[in-house]
Design a binder for these strands. Structure first.
Length: 201
DNA sequence: ATAGCGATTGACT
DNA sequence: GTCAATCGCTATA
């Protein structure tokens, strides 16, 4: 399966978020492939999106969101967790897609070692959990997924039913239905009160 | 220089 | 269901 190219990411952020569902996130660690199917994403945009890191313009942290599409934007939250984003939109237009959950496809045993949990949904059903399972941290901030040998994304399996709804854990921008997930997939992060606002395909 | 708080998680009642 | 953990970014002074 071919890797996603720059043009895939150089589009409207919501489109990229939707189209990433079903694609394979690949992490190469010590020669081994750890692979997860992307089952939940969220789109974050620019000056019009109060939930976005880019809402108040460029800063040292969010500068990658304004740059080339198809790079990893990894940030650290709550003093504990790393979150993996993929940058989107043409250069100069801020945007990124947060990968919120994956379904293990390859290297599940390695993921369990990295997380020190057994197999089961909690292995990779949240943004902080999947980065731990794949050993992704701020050291990979800026990694170019189009050319990297250790982190990239491959094209998708057929898309199941998709829902979208409000993003999780944000205080502003609640009215935007920019969270996308595969309906019924057990690796989608469970969140109280989140109901699908739209059903696609 | 420093207060405030976050795109979360895991432990515990 | 509630809550503490813990660090660095951002804003304000």
């Amino acid at each position: 399966v071919p890797r996603l190219r720059r043009s895939f990411f150089e589009r409207r952020t919501q489109v990229v978020a939707r189209r990433l569902l079903g694609c394979s996130l690949v992490r190469v660690l010590e020669g081994k492939r750890l692979v997860g199917r992307i089952v939940e994403t969220e789109a974050y945009r620019g000056a019009r999106d109060p939930a976005s890191h880019a809402y108040r313009g460029m800063t040292s942290r969010n500068a990658l969101m304004f740059g080339k599409p198809g790079r990893a934007y990894v940030y650290f939250v709550y003093g504990f967790h790393n979150c993996l984003n993929v940058t989107t939109e043409p250069v100069g237009t801020p945007g990124a897609v947060l990968i919120r959950a994956i379904e293990p496809v390859e290297g599940e045993a390695e993921m369990m070692k990295n997380r020190r949990v057994g197999s089961g949904a909690h292995l990779t059903d949240g943004p902080g959990r999947l980065t731990q399972a794949l050993r992704i941290d701020r050291g990979m901030n800026g990694e170019d997924l189009v050319g990297s040998g250790r982190l990239f994304i491959e094209g998708g399996s057929p898309t199941a039913k998709v829902a979208s709804g409000p993003r999780v854990g944000v205080s502003g921008g609640k009215r935007y239905p920019w969270r996308f997930y595969l309906i019924g997939n057990r690796f989608v992060s469970a969140q109280r009160g989140t109901r699908p606002r739209r059903i696609h395909n």
